[in-house]
Design a protein around this nucleic acid. Sequence first.
DNA 1: GCCAACGTTGGC
DNA 2: GCCAACGTTGGC
Length: 154
Amino acid sequence: MKHWLLKSEPDTFSYSHLATAPDRRTVWDGVRNYQARNILRDEICQGDLIFFYHSSCKQPAIVGICRATRTGIADPSQFDPASPYFDPKSSADNPRWITIEVEAVNALHPAITLKQMRTDSALQDMALLNRSRLSVQPVSDQEWQHIMSLTRSV
DNA sequence: GCCAACGTTGGC
DNA sequence: GCCAACGTTGGC
């Protein structure tokens, strides 16, 4: 099983939004970057565990864990003209944006802040620190285990 | 709000 | 296919 990291702006969709959603699940819509799409479409497998990261906020941090419950979903927002993520160049028989469904597993206490990760020698190769704009990222087994050792999931 | 990094668009 | 212009992300 591989590990991943998803970014979300908490003002838009926070970990607690996920944890209180019906079935604690949501379709991860709105990703419109091809590299991120390729990871969602080709690499994340059902059952994979994923860090939930809060970006563009006061304290950027990994705040929870979720699990990929379904894969290969055509992002419904690409077909919705009222959505900011509408893509007129996409079609139902050849959807451009493929995503996953995720389910909340646990919040992390404490959350692991970006600041803390930046100063942790075990985490210097993290994509988060080096490919900071990518909104769907791989997390190595070592990085995952290390971060888990710094916190407890509740 | 600023701005660096970097992805995308479109003219040529 | 190049690359300048432009748009977006996201930390600070």
